[in-house]
Simulated assay, not measured.
Amino acid sequence: MTERAWKIPESVLVVIHTPALDVLLIRRADADEFWQSVTGSKDALKEPLALTAAREVGEETGIECGEDSALASQLVDWQVQNVYEIYSQWLGRYAPGTRHNTEHLFSLRVPERLVPTLAPREHTAWKWLPYRDAADACFSPSNAEAILLLPQFAQ
């Protein structure tokens, strides 16, 4: 019998934005009303957070921002983290007794409103919005708060 691989309760949230502070939001495939920024958990406990962020951006949007990419220098770790209670519908993905996740905030500045290539099992639609409108559209309070911090971190 194989042992189940539980999600690691440490993740990244990456606010993708243009110089004009337009923000890319993507709609979750498993919750049609949930619009969000790129998010995702570490694949391994020792995985560096910047690697997690670049991997998740690539997987969820097709935008490459890893170490050797043209956008590598535009991926910024804000050195801010949120600890929040995991939504009940997703608790089964984590080891029994896990109730909280630690989320690390990043941003990725892109030169213009790019057309993402979505992972259809994860996301079904995308839209670019001015940052205040994007914050209003997010289902997650921590995502909305991160977007509202964008002007201070995007300098």
Rank of each mutant, 00 (worst) to 15 (best):
T2M: 08
E3V: 08
R4L: 07
R4V: 08
W6Y: 08
K7E: 08
P9T: 01
E10A: 06
V12K: 04
L13S: 15
L13G: 12
I16W: 02
H17I: 02
H17E: 06
H17L: 07
H17V: 03
P19W: 02
A20F: 04
L21F: 11
D22L: 06
V23F: 01
L24P: 00
I26W: 05
D30W: 07
A31V: 07
A31R: 10
D32S: 14
E33F: 09
E33H: 13
E33K: 13
W35E: 13
V38G: 04
G40Q: 02
S41H: 04
K42A: 09
D43E: 06
D43A: 08
A44D: 02
A44C: 01
L45Q: 07
K46W: 06
K46V: 10
E47S: 00
E47Y: 00
A53V: 08
A53Q: 11
A54V: 05
A54R: 03
E56P: 09
V57C: 10
E59R: 14
E60H: 13
I63E: 00
E64N: 09
G66R: 06
G66Q: 07
E67K: 08
E67M: 12
A72I: 04
S73D: 14
L75A: 04
L75E: 04
L75M: 06
L75H: 06
V76F: 13
V76M: 05
W78F: 11
Q79L: 03
Q79N: 03
V80E: 15
Q81V: 05
V83K: 14
V83Y: 06
E85A: 09
I86K: 11
W90N: 15
L91Q: 09
L91I: 04
R93K: 11
R93T: 10
P96H: 10
R99I: 08
H100E: 15
H100A: 15
N101W: 04
T102I: 14
E103R: 13
L105K: 15
L108K: 03
P111D: 01
E112R: 13
R113W: 01
L114M: 06
L114W: 02
V115S: 11
L118Q: 11
R121C: 05
E122K: 10
H123P: 03
T124D: 09
L129C: 03
Y131Q: 11
R132T: 12
R132E: 13
D136Y: 06
D136M: 09
D136T: 05
C138S: 01
F139S: 15
S142Q: 08
N143G: 13
N143E: 12
N143H: 14
A144T: 01
A146G: 03
L148W: 00
L149G: 10
P151C: 11
P151T: 04
P151A: 09
Q152V: 10
Q152N: 10
F153Y: 15
F153W: 11
F153C: 12
